[in-house]
Computed example of a mutant assay.
Amino acid sequence: MTLQGKWRIVEMPDYEADFPDMMGPAYILFGPAGGEFAFGCVTGTFPGHLDDDADAVQFSWDGNDEMDEACGEGWAEIQPDGSLAGEIIFHGGDEIAFTAKPWPTSSTAC
């Protein structure tokens, strides 16, 4: 299994259950040239090269938290059950643990 692709954040244990999806479905996306994430009122992007077969990654990110500039680092690793565990860490602030599952794909044409 590879990290590349979009992952649906399904749990953030230190927050209320409805927090991650406050502004839309919470996710983290990994592509060959970097990625992005969104949860609550937080968005971020990160550059970097990700190998096709990578099962773990560390990254530095820049973004926004409630419209204020924010930055930090993070990590993610595929677990034996196929889920993704990781943390998004704010510079000088919170360390937010998350669990994600592969983003469901639709086979229905629009």
Rank of each mutant, 00 (worst) to 15 (best):
W75G: 10
L50I: 15
I9M: 03
D68A: 15
E73I: 08
A85D: 07
T45C: 12
A33L: 12
F59M: 10
F59V: 06
G48Q: 03
F39M: 03
D52Q: 14
Y27T: 08
G63L: 09
G31M: 08
E16M: 15
G82F: 07
A85H: 09
I9V: 09
F59S: 05
H49P: 00
A17T: 13
V42Y: 03
I28L: 04
C71N: 14
G44L: 13
D81M: 12
E66T: 10
D81N: 14
M22L: 15
G63E: 11
D55R: 14
M22E: 13
D52W: 12
A33R: 11
L29I: 08
F90Q: 09
E87S: 09
E11F: 06
A33P: 00
D14S: 14
G72A: 10
A70G: 07
G63T: 11
A54M: 00
T43M: 09
D81P: 06
D53G: 12
F46I: 07
M12C: 01
E87A: 09
G44W: 03
G24F: 10
G31P: 00
Y27L: 12
C71V: 03
I28Q: 01
E11N: 14
M23I: 01
E77S: 10
M12H: 01
Y15R: 14
P20A: 00
F59D: 01
P80Y: 03
M23V: 05
D81C: 13
P20F: 03
A56V: 00
F19K: 05
C41D: 13
D52P: 02
G74W: 00
E69W: 13
I78Y: 02
A76E: 02
P80Q: 10
Q58M: 11
L29D: 13
I89R: 15
Q58C: 13
G74C: 05
E16W: 14
A85S: 09
D21M: 04
P25H: 11
V42N: 07
D21W: 01
F39A: 05
G48C: 05
D21K: 11
A17H: 07
D18L: 03
D53T: 14
E36K: 12
T43D: 08
G48N: 10
E87K: 09
D65V: 00
L29T: 10
P80G: 08
G74Y: 02
P32I: 01
P80R: 04
G44E: 07
D65L: 09
A85N: 05
H91Q: 15
G34H: 04
A17N: 06
G82Y: 05
M22C: 04
Y27F: 13
D18W: 08
L29E: 11
M12L: 12
E66N: 15
V42D: 05
M23T: 15
E11V: 05
P47S: 15
M67K: 15
G24N: 07
